[in-house]
Amino acid sequence: MAAASLLALIDDIATLLDDVALLTKVAAKKTAGVLGDDLALNAQQVAGVQAERELPVVWAVAKGSLVNKAILVPAALAISAFMPWAVTPLLMIGGAYLCFEGVEKLAHRWLHSADEDAAHAAELMQAAGDASVDLVALERDKIRGAVRTDFILSAEIIVISLGAVAGAAFSTQVMVLGAVALVMTVGVYGLVAGIVKLDDLGLWLVRQARAAQGAASHALQGAGDAILWLAPGMMKALSVLGTLAMFLVGGSILNHGLPLAHHGVDALVQSAALAWPAGHLLVQALLPLAADLVSGLLAGSLVLAGVSLVKRLFARAGSRAA
């Protein structure tokens, strides 16, 4: 009996770990949009920081991110345990916020002029190179801003992950959210560290090429030039892919949370598959993505319009009071 009980316990543990691995994978896929944005935003936070201080700044933000998740994970578990009815509304709010962030990015060139962006970038670069500027204070400001940004994005990740495991046992929820929090933090900030040091790697290869001879010199020079050319474009690509993924993830959350939208998308996919039997696999794969993208754009536009209207009303009320 003892042996049978031990085997049963081992089987239960193995099943639990399988469930954790599967649900963690599902949660990670659902948070892909946030991660893309997280990578771009946090890498941008260290723009203008002196090269030798880049990694310490990233490490400081990573520690702040761990503190954020140490607060958010227990809060999410408490909500799941005592207010499970709140998971879906929180998930919908998180999805709407994702869409809002995406639309706000697209609208950035209309909301902020290119001169403002250029002036801000020049100010950062000048401050980083000016010996009279307190770099410690500058770094602290950057770190605080990055940690605040991380808190919002981490909250989205945890809420989305909680929605993916809402029906699982509490122990599974603990393990999944803990795994997601740890893996996402290590993965995101490890990649951020790699991205911000890419240009240094390129310059190092170019220097090595000057010391080498023959084919080795040409190979090192080519690799260094390629990395230096790739580094600026990588951030832009991350930003574009992150924004697209935010619409897809946020739109998917909203479509699944609203029964009318969910059934409407299913009916549309079935009708399109019947109308084009030869391409039914392509229709089933692409049409839901298109529906999520459209829903994300519409929802984000509505939220942005609402936020802009509220800001204008408060600004008018403030001007009248003055």
Rank of each mutant, 00 (worst) to 15 (best):
M235Q: 09
G102M: 03
V58W: 04
R144C: 03
D130T: 08
L191T: 13
G36I: 12
F314T: 15
E52W: 00
S154M: 00
A96M: 08
V67W: 01
H256G: 14
V269S: 13
A322P: 03
A2G: 05
L286R: 06
A267I: 01
S217H: 05
V310P: 01
V147E: 07
L205G: 05
A121S: 13
I71D: 03
R140G: 10
L106Y: 00
L309K: 08
A179E: 00
L244K: 09
Q221H: 11
S295H: 05
A209V: 10
L39P: 04
K105R: 12
A47M: 07
M83R: 12
D115Q: 15
L286Q: 09
L124Q: 07
G233Y: 12
Y97N: 00
R53W: 02
V180K: 00
N68T: 03
K30I: 08
K197Q: 14
L241Q: 07
A60R: 11
D199S: 11
A285L: 12
I93S: 03
H262L: 07
A118H: 05
G306K: 04
L182T: 06
A21Q: 05
V73P: 00
M1Q: 08
V20F: 04
D150G: 00
A75M: 05
G187C: 06
C99Y: 06
D18N: 11
A237N: 05
L6H: 10
A114R: 14
V283I: 15
V180Q: 01
T185D: 01
V186A: 11
L281Q: 14
L16E: 04
L313I: 14
L16R: 07
A81G: 06
P56F: 08
G145P: 01
E156W: 00
A155S: 13
H262K: 06
S239Y: 01
L298A: 12
L254K: 03
L41A: 11
L289K: 14
Q45A: 12
L248I: 10
G187W: 02
I227M: 01
W110E: 14
V26M: 07
P89G: 03
L138Y: 06
E116S: 15
Y189N: 00
L304V: 13
S301F: 02
S154Q: 02
A14T: 04
A51V: 12
D150R: 04
V147G: 09
L41I: 15
L274E: 13
A245C: 11
K30S: 12
V192E: 12
L293V: 10
V159T: 14
S295C: 15
L258I: 15
L289F: 08
L77Q: 02
D292L: 07
S161P: 00
A272N: 04
I71R: 02
T88V: 06
L35P: 00
D18F: 09
L153N: 05
H256Y: 13
F170G: 05
H112A: 10
K63A: 02
D200Q: 12
A275Q: 13
A290L: 12
H112W: 04
